[in-house]
């Protein structure tokens, strides 16, 4: 697939520009894409953080571990990381929902559902589930 390497009257040298490793800084859409992909790290941290919380609550020994976890979660470094994490996790959710109509075609009675409704139903599901989680977790007394 690579072109001939020597120049002649009949085989001129093809010019192949070098793609920089920082190609993704050259366009806003490329940068947004890489940010979306980097959200993967923060999704992983979010999961780890939740598992640490679950461990603190369920390890036994009463509420002390839970209190210690809550105290740790207010630590400015932890808080700063978590703010960034939440930002990236929300960015993941938004980009994921917005791309959903391209990933699947939904048909109702033979007619294609317009992309707007596919996206809207995703956001609706997220809102309903989030509300359910908040109700479930905060339902008990403090």
């Amino acid at each position: 697939m690579s072109g001939p390497r020597t120049a002649s009257d009949y085989h001129p040298r093809w010019y192949r520009p070098y793609i920089s490793t920082y190609w993704w800084l050259e366009r806003r859409s490329y940068f947004a894409f890489i940010m979306r992909e980097l959200s993967s790290i923060f999704v992983a941290w979010g999961v780890i953080y939740l598992l640490l919380l679950i461990r603190a609550v369920s390890r036994g020994g009463g509420a002390t571990r839970y209190q210690e976890f809550l105290a740790w979660s207010v630590n400015p470094v932890v808080l700063a990381i978590n703010v960034v994490t939440l930002g990236f996790v929300v960015y993941h959710a938004i980009t994921w929902f917005n791309l959903s109509p391209q990933a699947m075609v939904v048909r109702i009675r033979g007619k294609r559902v317009p992309p707007f409704w596919i996206i809207a139903s995703n956001y609706l599901a997220c809102i309903v589930i989030s509300a359910a989680i908040l109700w479930l977790v905060l339902g008990g007394g403090s």
Partner: peptide
């Protein structure tokens, strides 16, 4: 991740530590 993580992290990583919402009892 898209459906569940935003609310869980908002709750336990931001709102409860910052005192916006009272932490659920143990």
């Amino acid at each position: 991740a898209a459906l569940l993580l935003p609310s869980l992290l908002f709750l336990f990583a931001i709102a409860v530590p910052l005192g916006w919402l009272a932490p659920p009892s143990y």
